[in-house]
Computed example of a mutant assay.
Amino acid sequence: MEHLPIHLPREAALGGPVQYRWMYPFERYMFHPKKNVKNLSKVEGSIVAQSLNEEASQFVEYYFPSEVRTKSRCPGRHDDRIERAIYPVVVPELFSQVGRVSGKNKTRTLSQQEFKHLHTYILTNCEEIAEYEKIYMALIRG
């Protein structure tokens, strides 16, 4: 350990910043190709074949119709492929998302203070509310 202060500055002077000599990003990248190896006796050829296969499939998927489900066009995590609800009034896009609840159904009533905080947050941060705010202000003034 006593030689460490001597050797570290010398290494930095010879090689420059450590990020240009660090193997971690390359090792991290190689994890994906190594995991797809099928033939353990010819690893390099197997990696090349798998890479070509992935590139070709990614290129070809752009020529499929948009309804065809591919690796890059998979539906959202909480999308049940149900139709959006139709409301009798205009509902902002923020509040009309399709999805499902995860976990057990829980009912909870907000306290008065929580309700006020939530109400204030929505009124000040939701862009969809700005149109209704203008209508309300016009009614108050007029």
Rank of each mutant, 00 (worst) to 15 (best):
R69Q: 10
H3Q: 13
W22H: 05
S66L: 08
C126R: 03
C126G: 01
S111K: 02
S57M: 09
I140H: 10
T107N: 13
N39R: 07
I6H: 04
Y24M: 14
G103W: 02
M1P: 02
E27F: 05
T109A: 02
K134R: 13
H78F: 12
H3G: 07
L8V: 15
R81S: 10
K104N: 10
S46G: 01
I135R: 10
P92D: 09
T70Y: 01
S41P: 01
S102D: 05
N36E: 09
I140D: 05
K116W: 04
A49N: 02
P9T: 00
H32S: 14
C126P: 00
F95A: 12
P65L: 07
Y29R: 11
E67K: 07
G103I: 11
E131H: 08
S96N: 14
V89H: 07
G15W: 06
P33K: 03
M1N: 03
P25L: 05
K106M: 13
Q112S: 10
A49L: 04
G16W: 02
I86Q: 11
S66G: 07
R77F: 15
E67H: 12
G15E: 05
E93T: 04
E11F: 06
G16P: 01
T120W: 04
I140G: 02
S41M: 04
E54P: 00
L118Y: 06
L139Q: 15
L123N: 14
F26M: 12
L40Q: 09
Q113D: 14
L40T: 08
I47Y: 00
Y132H: 11
M23F: 06
L4I: 14
S96G: 11
V90H: 06
Y29H: 14
E55Q: 09
V37E: 01
I129W: 01
E127H: 08
L94A: 11
V98F: 01
G16S: 08
K106T: 12
V68Y: 04
S51C: 11
D80L: 13
R21D: 04
E67A: 12
S51E: 10
P5D: 11
E131C: 08
G103T: 07
Y121T: 11
L110S: 00
